[in-house]
Design a protein around this nucleic acid. Structure first.
Ligand SMILES: [Zn+2]
Ligand SMILES: [Zn+2]
Ligand SMILES: [Zn+2]
Ligand SMILES: [Zn+2]
Lengths: 143, 143
DNA sequence: GTCACTATGTTATGTTGTAACGCTCACGGT
DNA sequence: ACCGTGAGCGTTACAACATAACATAGTGAC
């Protein structure tokens, strides 16, 4: 995460000021942000067009520095290495909006096996589970 | 699938003409359709407003008669019973746009276990895998 | 008849994401 | 120095996806 520059360079691109600002804004947020949230947060003094934000998001996703939550149309920074072939699972709390990113080799294997059974060649995976996080459960139930 | 009416009744709702038409349009399509595809297909003689289509889609999803593909913003009919607690996996072909729906108890178990490990109480799941279907692979590779 | 409820229509608007094109800057070749 | 090339971002306009607010039509209970 502190090595974002290296990761970008390895991908043949750079961590420009704007890209860094997007990354920092996402890191500073306690939950995933929408593209227009970023437009607003980055455009305080000088307006940034949505298209610019989307371009940055594409680059960062491609570099593996952030993820997109398809069920919410939001984006969050990634703190993982993703070196293994583990599947990434996003636990999306419908109460607080927070997202926990966990990985699982087991799910990756199941997923690959399931796909292979139908002759499907798998690529990108989106595994998103909506529910209630531990914190919100504790807050909701008295004692 | 032929018992859509019963399913709706069991849910305390009805399979109205409009809802039936949406269901039939999705069934007739060879791939998932977007809401505005449906607006167009159903509005040939008499215009249907987007909001009406979205309302119908909500009801059908609630009844379990159709599914939404979050990564594509499209909808497809469901031919499964979904009686077990198996997880549903959508294999989305990035080449032809077709979607294969498969279920897996194994993935459901892994998913539940993974969520439980963090104290997360899981609800709805969206497991979507993008890739290339068997048919498109065969068409792409000569011989 | 009146009331409540479900389903849909009408109009307008909000949210999310892209297309097309131009400008600037850094860099490498000559 | 000059030019070409490519990356990155700006500007404008628009497409695609989704919902809010309110009105209307039918159905059945009482
Ligand atoms: Zn990650
Ligand atoms: Zn929560
Ligand atoms: Zn299904
Ligand atoms: Zn295909």
């Amino acid at each position: 995460m502190r090595h974002a520059e290296e990761i970008c360079r390895a991908k043949g691109t750079q961590l420009t000021p704007l890209r860094r600002r997007v990354l920092e804004a996402l890191a500073a947020a306690e939950r995933p942000l929408g593209a227009y949230d970023l437009v607003e947060r980055l455009g305080r003094e000088r307006r940034i067009a949505p298209i610019s934000v989307y371009r940055v998001l594409d680059v960062l996703i491609e570099a593996g520095l952030i993820h997109r939550i398809a069920t919410r149309n939001t984006y969050l920074p990634c703190n993982h290495a993703h070196e293994s072939h583990a599947a990434t699972v996003f636990l999306v709390c419908s109460s607080c909006g927070g997202v926990d990113e966990v990985t699982s080799d087991e799910i990756a294997a199941s997923l690959t096996g399931t796909a292979a059974a139908t002759g499907f060649r798998p690529g990108a995976r989106a595994v998103e589970v909506e529910g209630e996080c531990a914190g919100c459960q504790a807050a909701a139930s008295p004692r």
